[in-house]
Simulated scan of single mutants.
Amino acid sequence: MARYTGPKSKIARKFREPIFGPDKALEKKNYPPGQHGPSKRRGKQSEYAIQLLEKQKAKYTYGVLERQFSNLFVKAAAKQGITGENFLKLLEARLDNVVYRLGIATTRAAARQLVSHKHITVNGNVVNIPSYSIRPGDVIAVRERSQALEAISNSVAGRTINKYGWLEWDAKGLTGKFLTYPERADIPENIKENLIVELYSK
């Protein structure tokens, strides 16, 4: 399946959460899209449906396709520790997500575009693969000839203090460092990873 390019408000309403950022449409219509509106006829969801919905929410939040998602889960399951937490840590370590967390881009979609268009380097080398896995100690930077791009300068200008303790940011050099994998409690996304684990365990 190709990456979703339709209305983001429709997806946010499906999950009843602003997974793509503040959304006025969600505020006005905080119920799933569809011709029946906020009807009580929407039946009680099965356990499988709830688990599947949580998986879809994680996929849309991080912008990951089905095959990438399942491959990452297999990788998380093979690691020591709690599978669900390992899974979220691997999602957070994707290059496009790290670029977004550092404030170089305002959204994950914009971060993916910057990476794909070769505006980002990792340890001094240009990397144009959004799914590239960052490791502790890696240095992520805006390519020197790309630092004047309006999209990047506007995003960095609107950046507040460093909100994420697992990342280090140098505003002067437009470089960031991935210090360590984040702890589950530090990841702000409202994802119930245990439901995803249960779904894949069937």
Rank of each mutant, 00 (worst) to 15 (best):
T83P: 07
T83Q: 12
T83C: 09
T83I: 15
G84D: 13
G84C: 10
E85D: 14
E85V: 15
N86M: 04
N86A: 10
N86F: 02
N86Y: 14
F87K: 06
F87D: 07
L88D: 07
L88K: 10
L88Q: 13
K89P: 03
L90V: 12
L90Q: 11
L90M: 15
L90P: 14
L91R: 07
L91W: 06
L91M: 15
L91H: 12
L91Y: 07
E92R: 00
E92Q: 08
A93L: 11
A93H: 08
A93M: 10
A93K: 04
R94H: 08
R94W: 04
R94F: 06
R94A: 10
R94S: 09
R94L: 13
R94K: 15
L95M: 13
L95V: 14
L95Y: 05
L95W: 12
L95S: 03
L95F: 11
D96F: 06
D96P: 06
N97H: 11
N97G: 12
N97D: 15
V98F: 02
V99K: 03
V99W: 01
V99S: 08
Y100T: 02
Y100G: 06
Y100M: 11
R101D: 05
R101E: 06
R101M: 03
L102N: 13
L102P: 06
L102T: 08
L102V: 08
G103T: 10
G103K: 08
G103I: 00
G103A: 07
I104G: 00
A105F: 08
A105C: 10
A105G: 13
A105V: 12
T106N: 14
T106A: 11
T107F: 01
T107G: 07
T107N: 03
R108Y: 11
R108Q: 09
A109V: 13
A109S: 15
A109G: 12
A109H: 10
A109Y: 09
A110I: 06
A110N: 04
A110P: 01
A110C: 02
A111P: 09
R112M: 05
Q113N: 07
Q113V: 11
Q113R: 13
Q113E: 14
L114T: 00
L114V: 00
V115A: 09
V115R: 05
V115K: 02
S116C: 00
S116I: 04
H117P: 01
H117V: 05
H117Y: 01
K118Y: 05
K118V: 03
K118A: 15
H119V: 00
H119L: 09
I120M: 10
I120P: 03
I120C: 02
I120F: 07
T121F: 00
V122I: 10
N123S: 10
G124R: 08
G124F: 04
G124W: 02
N125W: 00
V126W: 07
V126K: 14
V127E: 01
V127D: 04
V127R: 10
N128C: 04
N128M: 11
